[in-house]
Design a protein around this nucleic acid. Structure first.
Lengths: 248, 248
DNA sequence: CGACCGCTTGAGTCCCATCAAAGACTGTGG
DNA sequence: CCACAGTCTTTGATGGGACTCAAGCGGTCG
């Protein structure tokens, strides 16, 4: 166990990189002050477990930087990822004192934590927080439902293509590199994590990636660096609605 | 097309069967009055489509009675159910003017509709509504994630057992018939709807139900009337965490 | 009665999981 | 420097679980 205690000396909410996307997005100056008084930072290294399902959890948090995963498991070890936590995503549930899922850091991550009780009280008094949280939860619900369609009805090849196109689009929307329809990005996940996300085995993931490469749908440089020569082609492989889903 | 216009003469919120569970659960008398002024009822017959994905939707609603389904489809017709709407469940999304899913009435249903714009304005002013909606949305998100585990990792037999145990428990919690661990209920879904829910084909659903019957896990009377002689046994077949999920 | 719908059951096929082995890369220690 | 272990990944061989295609049953409705 090395240091999961590299807390930033102090980060002002005003300077926070997720200030305008996280649960605090709508807060005004005085509301931020209140949040600031109950917040603290925690960081975790890639591979570390943030919390185990069922564990006591007396904080809620925002992911400031890095990537984490939300997973559920069956007794015999079968694992399904049920969410991917990206910067600005919210962790935990007000009113619930135990974690419902395993949270694992995929990369090094920094989280902005709020003690749960004070946060809940603050939420009662501050509609801006509840409103934003509602929005974010509705978005997550939509994402979960899109994923249900993928898990229930798509083939392995379509699943891989879907994941790649989602990562590609997210990446393109962050760095505004809209060079034609050619896109390049890094996969933030191992083959195993992809398998857990897609409801496949890692062997099948590997095979289907190889197949997409062989068929010219994607190009690979190393294991993780992907370029998509023709985004439209990839979308077709994903089997989604034609146009390409405007929803983030 | 027969009459989908059997509106109840008038139903006072105070007498509403879902008064204390729906989105209005936390509202006080004066808030109810406001809701009452923008509400109207619509009913649909079993089998009717309430709305198509992508259609304009200028209302949100609560299911008062009956059952409806939320489904998503791929271009080639593959269908996945992404939600089951039971009495008190909320339909639509504030701030979104088009339906994201197909909604179909499984039984005759009655919906309490609110014009969207006034509802949104009311929500801004009425934290009680937003708070309740947040709770309900978080519950739905949990349900969706549990379903992701089922879709991604469970076998056909486990999927069927899971569905049966969910319906059984819900039914038992409504009518307080806790006779030992023997339970009896009706399936509200056709084999095809079950298949769409579980990410299976209707043939596989039928075969697995037959198998569970043959193995004595369930007993069948007709096609829809199920009795579970030993609830614990069913839970084991479902592959879930041992104890049996206290979460409603 | 015949048509239709929901459901069951059978036969054959295929996609993906499983089991197994080996390649690519990294870091560690002799 | 290289040997070695460990992790991540690829690829092959095999089998099985669920899908597909197809036929038939029982009930309801026109």
């Amino acid at each position: 166990m090395s240091h999961d205690d590299v807390y930033p000396a102090s980060l002002q909410c005003g300077d926070c990189p997720i200030r305008h996307r996280a649960v605090c997005a709508r807060c005004e100056a005085n509301e931020l002050d209140e949040l600031e008084s109950v917040k603290y930072y925690r960081s975790f290294e890639a591979g570390q477990t943030v919390i185990w399902s069922g564990d006591k959890m007396d904080f809620v948090a925002s992911v400031v930087s890095g990537i984490a995963t939300l997973t559920q498991t069956l007794e015999d070890g079968r694992t399904q990822m049920v969410g991917l936590l990206l910067p600005s995503d919210f962790v935990g549930r007000p009113g619930r004192d135990r974690a419902a899922y395993n949270i694992t850091a995929t990369t090094d991550i920094l989280m902005c934590c709020f003690r749960r009780k004070p946060f809940e009280e603050l939420m009662e008094r501050t509609p801006h927080i509840a409103q934003r949280l509602l929005q974010m939860t509705l978005d997550e619900l939509d994402a979960a439902r899109e994923w249900m369609l993928l898990l229930g009805r798509k083939t392995a090849r379509e699943k891989i293509a879907s994941l790649l196109s989602i990562v590609a689009r997210r990446d393109a929307s962050i760095r505004h590199r809209r060079t034609d329809n050619r896109l390049t990005f890094d996969l933030p996940l191992t083959r195993e994590a992809m398998a857990d996300y897609l409801g496949l085995t890692l062997e099948t993931v590997s095979r289907q990636i190889s197949a997409l490469k062989r068929d010219g749908v994607i190009e690979l440089e190393g294991k993780r660096h992907v370029t998509v020569p023709d985004m439209e082609r990839l979308m077709i492989e994903a089997g989604d609605d034609s146009d390409g889903g405007l929803i983030v």
